[in-house]
C-alpha cells in the first residue's frame, strides 16, 4: 500500500436493517473504501451494488432504500469519514 492509498482509505461500519438484513443474510460489516475522491453515501451504495446478487437487486437505482449516517438520515451526497456508522434502511413501517 502506498502513502496516497493510506491517506484516502477509510473504514466504515455498515448496518443492514429489517428486510435488507435478511436479503443480505448479514446484520452488518466493516467496509474499507480506498479511492481518490472523498467517499460519499452514493459511492458506498455503488460499491455494494457492484457485488451483484442480492446487493445489486436491492440497491438498484429507483429502489426505496434510505441511508442514515451516524443515526441521522443522509442524502446520496453526504460525505463519509473514517469510523462512520452507515445504516441501510428499507421504507419504514412503524406506528
Amino acid at each position: 500500500m502506498n502513502d496516497t492509498a493510506t491517506r484516502t482509505a477509510i473504514t466504515i461500519n455498515i448496518v443492514y436493517l429489517a428486510r435488507l438484513r435478511e436479503a443480505f443474510a448479514s446484520a452488518g460489516e466493516r467496509l474499507k473504501i480506498a479511492q481518490d475522491t472523498p467517499p460519499t453515501v452514493a459511492s458506498v451504495l455503488k460499491t455494494l451494488a457492484a457485488r451483484g446478487g442480492a446487493f445489486a437487486t436491492e440497491l438498484a437505482p429507483g429502489r426505496a432504500v434510505r441511508v442514515a449516517v451516524n443515526h441521522v438520515l443522509a442524502s446520496s451526497e453526504t460525505p463519509l469519514r473514517d469510523g462512520d456508522e452507515v445504516a441501510l434502511l428499507p421504507p419504514v413501517t412503524g406506528g
Binding site: 428486510r19 442514515a68 434502511l89 419504514v92 413501517t93 406506528g95
Partner: peptide, 25 residues
C-alpha cells in the same frame, strides 16, 4: 404520528397463513 410513520426507523414483519412477510410502506 404522521411524521413517525414516515421518519422513525421501525419495521413490521407479519405472520400470515402464507408465511412471514415484511409490511410494505
Amino acid at each position: 404520528i404522521d411524521y413517525l410513520k414516515t421518519q422513525a426507523p421501525f419495521w413490521k414483519k407479519e405472520e400470515t397463513p402464507a408465511g412471514a412477510r415484511w409490511v410494505d410502506a
